[in-house]
Simulated scan of single mutants.
Amino acid sequence: MSKRDYYEVLGVSRDASERDVKKAYKRMAMKCHPDRTKGDKAMEEQFKEVKEAYEVLNDAQKKAAYDQYGHAGVNQQGGHGGQGDVGDVFGDVFGDIFGGGGRGRQQRAARGSDLRYNMELNLEEAVRGVNKTIRIPSQCHCEVCNGSGAKSGSKATTCSTCHGQGQVQMRQGFFAVNQACPTCHGKGKIIKDPCRKCHGEGRYERSKDLKVTIPAGVDTGDRIRLTGEGEAGDIGAASGDLYVQVSVRQHAIFERDGSNLYCEVPISFAHAAIGGEIEVPTLDGRVKLKVPAETQTGRMFRLRGKGVKSVRGGATGDLLCKVTLETPVKLNAEQTELLQQFEASLNSASAKKHKPKSEGFFNGVKSFFDDLTK
């Protein structure tokens, strides 16, 4: 009986990639594997045919021979692939679904963990930038054994249980599940004479001082990465990174909103009514702000370029100054009398124009109650 074309068996084109071939095999193997078809001889034969096609098309050398000479070219190499242990092949292909790679896939040494350090800055430090020295506890590579974990003059040996793979395979029905080797704990090697400094771990815990450059313009929520300053990895693996998480303390005068700064400036009644210059604070020192006559409380003044230049670039922000009228307190008798005289002058019939907001408000109130009584 003539054999079917292997590409037809897997349902792929002749220019299919290795990935497409593997995906097709997984799909067909799931469909007709003997453990799922419960003794169906036809499906079992189909599975053998699928397995044979996969073993040829997944091997570059066999595939080239098959493409040139057909089945005869494969048979000359002794490659028919139909008599293997179906459970082994099924476990190799699907093992990564249940715990990682199949046979021959070695567990990689684990990269070191990333660390986080919370750094609190005042507003001036965040705006201008600053250099800080921090101390962090960390897992560091052992300098005595150069991270090998073995005592000087000795070396680690290959684990006899997993043969250096770091994993052993456990079978559950027709599934092959990989787990860390219980003898070497996934490392693939055994250290019989461990380093006294790190006790065979290749690393140990210690505190270290690091200089951190905080760039100008950072804000709460920004973080700075120090590559390789995290915990040391397993033997032969890279160290993790250190992330410095920035938070900016509340300032006594300024509030920050992106690149802009905001502050409230109290002014006297006289300054608001007559106008004049007042001093306002900025991060670079005091500046003069001209307040026009008849300024009302809550008015906002913008000082351009007196804000923050963001660490992400762009133009420098502005300083927004909100003026608030400060009511005088603890008046003496003379001051109280002067204010009473001044208030009386404003309430005269000819002086109502001096309080347009009050006049409009009370006229509105009067109209409201008049409407209620109609």
Rank of each mutant, 00 (worst) to 15 (best):
S207T: 04
L121F: 04
A29C: 13
Q245S: 12
A180W: 01
F342D: 12
D35V: 08
A238P: 07
M30L: 13
Y117P: 11
I267R: 01
L210I: 14
E205P: 04
R203S: 10
E55G: 12
G101H: 03
E277I: 09
G79K: 12
K38D: 06
R128C: 14
A109E: 00
S207Q: 08
V246S: 07
H354A: 14
R196Y: 06
S345C: 01
H33T: 00
R312H: 09
Y69W: 15
Y243G: 07
S259F: 01
S17Q: 03
A126K: 09
R299P: 02
K132T: 04
G153L: 10
F368M: 14
Y7N: 08
S160R: 10
C145M: 07
C195S: 07
M28G: 06
Q83R: 13
G81H: 04
Q107C: 05
T133K: 11
T158S: 11
G298R: 05
E294W: 08
P328H: 06
T133Y: 09
L261E: 03
A29R: 05
K322C: 02
K288S: 14
S358G: 13
K63G: 06
T220G: 04
I134Q: 06
N122G: 12
A232M: 11
D92W: 09
L242H: 02
R108Q: 08
T157V: 10
A60P: 14
G240H: 05
E45K: 07
A29M: 04
E343R: 15
P281I: 03
G87C: 12
V308Y: 01
V265W: 09
G313A: 10
A126W: 02
I224V: 06
L115D: 06
G364L: 07
L283Y: 04
K22E: 10
V291W: 01
G173P: 05
R299L: 03
G285W: 05
V244D: 02
Q83H: 13
S160H: 12
Q76A: 08
A351I: 03
N122M: 00
C142I: 09
N75G: 05
Q341N: 14
G186L: 02
I136Q: 03
Q250R: 14
E334G: 14
V244A: 01
G84C: 02
R206N: 08
E52M: 14
K31L: 12
G360Q: 12
G91E: 01
T183F: 09
K132M: 04
K23I: 10
Q83G: 10
E264A: 11
F368I: 03
V365R: 00
A351M: 08
A180T: 05
V144S: 15
G285V: 13
T158Q: 06
P215G: 11
P292E: 02
R108I: 08
R302S: 09
E337S: 15
T373E: 12
